[in-house]
Design a binder for these strands. Sequence first.
DNA 1: TATTTTATGATTGACTTCAGTCATATATTG
DNA 2: CAATATATGACTGAAGTCAATCATAAAATA
Lengths: 258, 258
Amino acid sequence: MKVAYELVNARREKLAQMLQDQAYIPISNVCSQLNISEATARRDLAFLEANQRIVRTYGGALVEYNQKFPSFLERQQVELKGKKKLAKVARDLIIPKSTCFFDAGTTIYALAFELKQKPVEGVKIVTNSLPIAELMTGVQGIEVHLLAGQYLHRQGVIFGEATVKTVRFYDIDDAFMSAEGFDQKGLWNSDATVVEFQRQVIRQSSRKVFCLGAEKMGKRAPVFLSDWGNVNVLISDAISSDLPVYSQAQFKGKIFSI
Amino acid sequence: MKVAYELVNARREKLAQMLQDQAYIPISNVCSQLNISEATARRDLAFLEANQRIVRTYGGALVEYNQKFPSFLERQQVELKGKKKLAKVARDLIIPKSTCFFDAGTTIYALAFELKQKPVEGVKIVTNSLPIAELMTGVQGIEVHLLAGQYLHRQGVIFGEATVKTVRFYDIDDAFMSAEGFDQKGLWNSDATVVEFQRQVIRQSSRKVFCLGAEKMGKRAPVFLSDWGNVNVLISDAISSDLPVYSQAQFKGKIFSI
DNA sequence: TATTTTATGATTGACTTCAGTCATATATTG
DNA sequence: CAATATATGACTGAAGTCAATCATAAAATA
């Protein structure tokens, strides 16, 4: 039998709440606590997952982690595999006792993940990404510094005017960054304020390392970030002869094509 | 075949680590990532559960929420009850569209908790406490701004030189703060850098609201924070006639004694 | 070196979860 | 009021998970 929309929504809200409190609830409990059948319980979970409120697991669902960086986690799961290769190469470029900036986004998150597996001694990481900060914190021999700014829940990122200002406090050796697209002209991103921030980072870093997946090659995004003259190291899994930097006198960096 | 203890422990440690990073891992992934059989994977999970490092779920395992801010959550649970009363009073002092600084610590966390229950429209919260930021983020009509600095995992706090510097970017209406002790002379805290930071906040806030539990009355801590002249509002559950401010000509603020 | 201990993988059967299909009752819409 | 849309529960087979048992090989111990 059909049931009023309100009731359905209220129940789903309650389920979301329950998951928040209990972190994990077996399906059977969901049924008994809400007095619904297994089928409906599953449908409710599916709904909440579709709305990115939870992450389903075999036998239940997770809120907690997902709630923190909802969209972030999603992207991560899909793309992490391909980025692992880039990340491993980038990881080996990190110098002991250096200060590194880690850009927000899944590409650099993968790098952070590799660094955690194989830490480099005395490294200071400066970032505006909370997932990266939480991943790296507590790792022996590594210091995490967060930038100031508004905490944007969905992206798990700290951002705003203050972020651009505070990055000036840091003297960065290596900046590990990514972009949404790259072509002969250079690097592109979709948000103007993000680009402004990234430019500030570029200005203040002795070495700029860009990790760019092959899928981004030839693509442009609305805002131009930088030409190839600012790139010291390019890491990509695109076929090396296809890389736009080959036709660039500008580019004087090193290429890791894998 | 038997395997050296070291290897077993190392593998279990790695598994615990993996769970911390990924929050949830299906058994099948555990097997493939560690190159062990299902049986062993289960045994490892059982071990970690016995040591209270994880909570098992059907099909995988969860790292306890507690692990995130270990010491912080501990304190919170013990003391939250008494602080709820103070928090409710403080909550009602918050003005729509104002910018509020929220001090790190359990007392102000309780305030954040109350504010979440009953949000005030258009409030901007500036804080260096990650538990508070994560609690408040996503609440309708409330913006969260984090300060820069080193991320101290155990305390869940952002702190350091940069924290003091970045707080200057903000024009704070109301600062909600606490201290470890208070007496006739004024307020006390145990850490010199924390005090330096708090003084900066005091300098920049139009109104200074201190929430001080009765158990802190008459106590001193190593570092002097401020005399009563800087306190605009005092909220405490101590008996009002006992409060040291009564013998203070300095004190011109308002008292909420409950 | 010989003996004991134990970490492991394979196997088993019971149990749980899952996605899909279908009939039905009720809300919603026209 | 009639027609439509849809939320639900029951049922299904397939797949995943679990705890227990057992043989084995390598580490630990004597």
